[in-house]
Design a binder for these strands. Structure first.
Lengths: 145, 145
DNA sequence: GATTCAGTAACTTTGAATGTTACAGGAAAT
DNA sequence: ATTTCCTGTAACATTCAAAGTTACTGAATC
C-alpha cells in the first residue's frame, strides 16, 4: 500500500498549534506547513478533537491543545487515529494444515508483544519533548544560516 | 495501501519447511497451506535463501532451514525481507516553517526508538518457539475435534 | 528428451492512503 | 442581515505498494 504518515501529520498539527499559538492557525496555514491540503488538515484535526486532544469551535480559527503538551504522548495521538496495527497477520491460511490452522493465533501472540513494546515507547514520548526538540533544532539551523 | 503480510507468510514458510520436512515441500504444497500462489511462495523463499535462512537447490524440491529453528529469530526474518519501517515520517513538509523544517528529523529520532523496541522483541522470539506454539495449539485442537 | 519444479521477470489487480472538490453551517464584521 | 471567511464533512479521484497472475528459462531426475 501507500505508506501512511497520518501519525506524523497529526503530531505536526499539534506541534504547530502550540508553537504558532499567536499566529494564523487556519487549516490553510497549517496545510502550508505540512505541504498538504486544508481539507486533509481539517479531517485530522476533527479526529484529534473527537479524541479530546484538541479543542476547536466551528466557524472560528481557534484550535488549542485540550491539555498541556507535556500531558499528551505520541501514544495518545496514535490511539486517537485508531491504533492501526504495526504488523499484520495473514488471515487467509488453510485451516486444514497444522501450520495454516494455527499460525494466525501464534503470530497474534508474537505481534501483540511487538505492538506493546512499540506502544510503551510511544507512551514515553510527550508532545512537549517533540516541540522542544523542534525548537532546539531550529535554533541550531538559524545559527548556521 | 494494502496491508503487507509478507513477514507472516515468510514465517509460515519456514515453520512449514521444518514441520513438514518429510513431506511435500514444493512451492505448490506450501502455497496450499498459505492459501496463496506458488509464484509468491517461490519469491519469498528466494528472498529467504538469499538472506541465508533457507537452503534450496534449483530444480529440486529440497528446501531446508539453513540453521536450527532455535537460532532463527523473527527479527532475522524481518531483516531478510528488508526491514520495512513500522512508522513513516512525512518527507514532504515546508522547510521554511519552524515545524515543517525540523519535524522530520525530530520524528526520525522518535520513530527510531519505537523501531528498536519492536526489533528487540522480534529478536527475542525464535522460530522454534513459534513452531512449538503451533504444535501445542494443534494438539489442543485435535483433542477437541 | 520429457517432466517437474525452482527462480525470476513482467504485468494486472487490489485496497488503503492521500488528494481534491464541493457544500452546508457557524462566527464575526460591516 | 448579508457578506465573508472559515470549519466540518461527505463524496469522489488519484496514487502507489502489496499481492496475485502469467509466462518463461533452466536445473534435476527419470
Amino acid at each position: 500500500m501507500k505508506y501512511s504518515h497520518k501519525l506524523s501529520d497529526a503530531i505536526h498539527i499539534l506541534a504547530y498549534v502550540d508553537i504558532y499559538k499567536d499566529d494564523d492557525l487556519s487549516s490553510k496555514a497549517i496545510a502550508l506547513s505540512v505541504e498538504s491540503n486544508p481539507s486533509l488538515i481539517r479531517r485530522l484535526m476533527s479526529t484529534l478533537a473527537k479524541a479530546g486532544l484538541l479543542t476547536t469551535r466551528p466557524g472560528t480559527v481557534s484550535p488549542e491543545l485540550a491539555r498541556p503538551a507535556s500531558e499528551i504522548s505520541v501514544y495518545d495521538v496514535y490511539e486517537a487515529l485508531g491504533k492501526e496495527d504495526l504488523l499484520h497477520i495473514d488471515d487467509k491460511t488453510n485451516p486444514k494444515c497444522i501450520v495454516g490452522g494455527n499460525i494466525q493465533e501464534t503470530l497474534d501472540g508474537v505481534y501483540d508483544k511487538v505492538q506493546s513494546a512499540a506502544e510503551n515507547v510511544m507512551g514515553a514520548v510527550t508532545l512537549q519533548s517533540i516541540i522542544d526538540d523542534i525548537l532546539v533544532r531550529e535554533q541550531k539551523r538559524s545559527r548556521v544560516d
